[in-house]
Design a protein around this nucleic acid. Structure first.
Lengths: 207, 207
DNA sequence: CTACAAACTTAAGTCAATTCATTTTCCGGA
DNA sequence: TCCGGAAAATGAATTGACTTAAGTTTGTAG
């Protein structure tokens, strides 16, 4: 009968996460205290720790929500990728980038990544790592799809190719969020250059 | 005459950094307090803040020392790279990896990276970013060198290629330090697979 | 030799995340 | 309806990074 206690618990969790989302976005991560989040959610500070292991976990939980959204949308790109393989890859990766700033600022991304890095074994640190893996797998799926159409050397391991492409976009994204002044256009331009290079490869052409 | 004050100051700085290195290595980052570092260096806690902006900066200073060492050693590899271009690249990148754990544990790397990420504009956050850039540039130099020997398509931008290769090794290194149980052999194996793929490129071979 | 200013050190704070002993709330059974 | 115990909430206490204001030390100019 989904007892009252269960429902209250789920509700509290939502309330706390919503309060955190609101305050993190409004005041930033560093300037939002647990007290403030607790106040906004109308609970005591200690209660927050019954639902989340730390302030950082709260942020990573938000990132994870965002990640699921991106991943779901990414599927539709894979379903009908552009003819040109380089464009297909660019489209998926650019999509990841464009979505990243809809819900979260650069400051929040920095702190989320920093927390995931320094606490990789916590419940939410693992969640972050898994999200990354899923997005890399998604890139791998796209590669497999392009291989099936003969656009990409079919002797290559699509998983490895997906990993490399995700590493490239993820590394560039880290630089992007680390520099408050760097415009998203520059990130995309750099990404395009690097994807082209990965596509062409380093070995001398037979020309 | 290199006034007494100057010399004392340099000495203190060295003492504090040495104390931090000792305690970080022995007890880990989280379990080492500024008080303890100050005690080991025989100064007051506040004094530490005259030399370093934060506990994280202290760690990044250690990483920077390590980084300079790696970079200097990397030059000798570039000076006489192996004949085979894939092997040359592997040798440089594998060297970075092998050096990484000589002075710093996985836990220290995680915390150093996390600090550099969350405070990218602090003095030492910038130092970390610059170190990364220098290592990426070094990879670019190697590519340029291989291009000069005709081992690599000379129409490619060596800087871009160096960036991509460094992103690959750096991303894999982050996964490596995030997983306490991951052996260095697996990291190298994965790196080898990805480097080969970047070398070959994704486009269908003309076979 | 002496007085002064700049730079340094210190120790006593402040502040906010996290913990924990205690109280309150909910549930199932008598 | 009432009771015992488990789960959850509470907020005061703890902890440790970082700040600051006051006191020292050092180099220097008169």
């Amino acid at each position: 009968m989904a007892g009252l206690r269960e429902r209250q618990k789920a509700g509290r969790r939502r309330d706390i996460l919503a309060a955190a989302a609101k305050l993190f976005r409004r005041d930033g991560f560093a300037d939002t205290s647990i007290e403030a989040i607790a106040g906004e959610a109308e609970v005591a500070a200690g209660t927050v720790y019954n639902y989340f292991e730390s302030k950082g976990d709260l942020l990573i939980a938000l990132v994870a929500l965002d990640g699921e959204e991106v991943r779901a949308a990414g599927r539709s790109i894979i379903a009908s990728p552009p003819k040109d393989p380089v464009q297909a890859i660019q489209k998926l990766l650019t999509f990841y980038i464009d979505h990243s700033l809809i819900h979260l600022s650069k400051e929040l991304w920095r702190n989320a990544m920093a927390n995931a890095l320094s606490q990789p074994s916590s419940k939410f640190g693992l969640a972050y790592a898994e999200l990354d893996r899923k997005l890399a797998d998604q890139a791998g799926e796209l590669i497999a799809c392009l291989q099936a159409r003969g656009e990409i050397d079919s002797s290559l391991d699509p998983k490895t190719a997906g990993d490399v492409l995700f590493e490239v976009v993820n590394s560039l994204f880290m630089v992007f969020v680390a520099r408050e002044e760097m415009p998203i256009a520059l990130l995309k331009k750099t990404l395009a250059r690097q994807v082209k290079l990965v596509f062409a490869g380093l070995c001398p052409s037979d020309a």
